[in-house]
Amino acid sequence: MKKLFVELNLLISLIFLGLTLSFPTFLAIAAANNRPERIVSISPSLTEILFAIGAGQQVVAVDNISNYPPDAPTSPLSAMEPNMEAIATFEPDLVVLSYDIGGLVKGLNTIGINTILLPAALNFEEILNQIIELGQVTGNLDQARELVEEMNTEMTSLISMRKSKVRMSVYHEIDENYYSPSTNSFIGSIYRLLNLHNIADQADKDGVGYPKLSPEYILSSNPGMIILPGKTPEYVAKLKNRPGWSAIDAVKQERFLIIDPDIGSRWGPRIVAFAKAVVARSDLDEN
């Protein structure tokens, strides 16, 4: 009963979220009236947000992993090991990043380049916050609000669709080491919103977000659906052959969801597409 209440609460707060837009979050360094025209993004997730809120025209360079949308100006800039000098050669007036590695923010600010640091979101709400924030900073607030509202609506309908359904258990497999995202990670938080029981939650007592599961625990918790980001059919065949796994409901009913690993690991607008895919798969045989 308490859980239901928490979720209801979440739902309501989500609905109001798009309307109120009053988050005292990160302080943008760029002044609102001073619209940046040369943005460099070294975060694949933030690149996706920038383009979705219509700031694409202002972006001059994105890092080497930012592959979506396809027309993003990919450059050799490293997202993992960002190099200040390499970034500066693009003469940006705003650098958008998610990890402040090696004092990057301070360094860029010293040479007069504005930065906005938006670390990995932990849940849907934070994604929306970041969208609004990027909207404000880049001068695309209206489109950002539109996007947030749209995402919110879709998510709300997905949530209400799932609400009445059986609470199916899911297992999200990253690889054979059995690390799996729990509710303390943003991908896991989506399962929570969709009224799915994520088996990784029980193993994440310390709240690290990606616990390593015991294989026999996966077996005995009998997930009804297995999410496999970017896996091949051969991988699935091998998975089915693991001893005893033929007894798992998900394997019996072939309820696997193979998703684009980028969608499943970025906190951008496409998270809604991910949620949609999850809902579609989980609704397959349920009526």
Partner: peptide, 11 residues
């Protein structure tokens, strides 16, 4: 490694 923090595992 398998049982100390079960159902999680330590490497």
């Amino acid at each position: 490694a398998r049982s100390a923090v079960a159902p999680a595992e330590l490497p």
